[in-house]
């Protein structure tokens, strides 16, 4: 069974075995507005938790997407370069950014579960 957890920077992570799929949350895409471009990392890149993984751009803003876990990029969602709108339409599904081979699974536990994230977002208003 896979589980989805969330970071304070509004990334979501779905862990299956030692592979983590990463994207931005519905709240994040809403804040950003129409996504026009996604700059994805190269496969094979090693990233550290909290460091820049990708960049997502709307018309008037550019935001970094941080790696919620450390690991190596094993796959990226290259369809986003053609259809960045997918991030708005299906942030938690088809709008995923990258898959990481996770180096330290224990980092997953320190992320928020859905209820905690929901509460966290409510607290931002």
């Amino acid at each position: 069974m896979s589980e989805v957890r969330y970071s304070q920077e509004h990334e979501w992570v779905k862990l299956e075995g030692d592979t983590a799929t990463i994207g931005i949350t519905h709240y994040a895409q809403e804040q950003l507005g129409d996504v026009v471009f996604v700059d994805l990392p190269e496969v094979g890149k090693k990233v550290e938790k909290g460091k820049e993984l990708a960049t997502v751009e709307s018309v008037k803003a550019a935001s970094e997407v941080y790696a919620p876990l450390s690991g190596e990029v094993v796959e990226v969602n290259s369809t986003l370069s053609e259809t960045p709108a997918t991030v708005n339409e299906d942030a938690l599904g088809a709008g995923w950014f990258a898959k990481l081979k996770v180096s330290d699974k224990s980092q997953f536990g320190s992320l928020m579960d859905e209820a905690a994230y929901k509460k966290y977002v409510e607290g931002l208003h």
Partner: peptide, 8 residues
């Protein structure tokens, strides 16, 4: 414009 100074 996201390349430019007034945003980036």
């Amino acid at each position: 414009s996201t390349r430019e100074q007034h945003i980036r």
